[in-house]
């Protein structure tokens, strides 16, 4: 066993901190998530993770439907994520991308062999990871990747690029990889 520790930053409503500190993070299940199901953290990489978590918390506070903020104050929560190397898929490295591409090609080959193709849309990377986990042939606890994420200005002005602006990780089962002792407030403020 070879453990690695990653420092992650998660931006959210300040009212959530007490519950997270007591009960740990509650992983979200979502089809649109970049790296599959889990709790997402900004980590050291292509840009400042604390600033990214703060920007994310501020952007997430805005509700487009109501035209209001859903919360007024935010926190950036710092946590230590400990994971065995064999359960860590790092898509910021060629080794990690090689695994993902192998996996993706296997799914695609299977679908093509059945003379099927997607009617509309495109495959979601997170779904590939979720399916590998669901079918128990890849034991992935933490996934890391570089992504282009839209914060407030990018959302307002609809700015899109393909080159990543953030490095993030998804922790599928926080109770396995995060000790609540390491969960603390790094920064807080008003949105």
């Amino acid at each position: 066993m070879s453990l690695i520790t990653i420092i992650g930053f998660h931006g959210t409503n300040s009212l959530h901190f007490k519950d997270i500190k007591t009960n740990n993070f509650n992983p979200s299940l979502g089809d649109v998530h970049w790296l599959g199901d889990g709790i997402y953290f900004f980590v050291e990489g292509v840009s400042d993770p604390v600033q990214n978590a703060e920007n994310w918390a501020k952007a997430s506070a805005w509700n487009n439907n109501t035209g209001n903020y859903t919360y007024q104050s935010y926190v950036v929560i710092k946590a230590e994520i400990v994971v065995d190397k064999s359960k860590f898929l790092d898509l910021t490295t060629l080794e990690g991308i090689e695994i993902f591409n192998y996996l993706r090609n296997k799914f695609v080959e299977k679908i093509v062999s059945g003379k099927k193709r997607l009617k509309i849309g495109q495959f979601n990377d997170g779904h590939i990871i979720n399916l590998a986990r669901k079918n128990n042939f890849l034991d992935i606890e933490v996934v890391k990747g570089n992504f282009y994420i839209k914060f407030t200005p990018e959302r307002i002005y609809d700015i899109n690029f393909r080159t990543p602006n953030c490095t993030i990780i998804a922790v599928n089962s926080p109770k396995i990889n995060i000790n609540t002792i390491t969960i603390n407030i790094e920064k807080e403020g008003e949105v």
Binding site: D31, I111, K116, L118, K119, N124, H127
Partner: peptide, 11 residues
């Protein structure tokens, strides 16, 4: 499995 995630396929 993909259809359960909302994907649609055609022959």
């Amino acid at each position: 499995q993909f259809e359960e995630l909302g994907y649609e396929f055609e022959d």
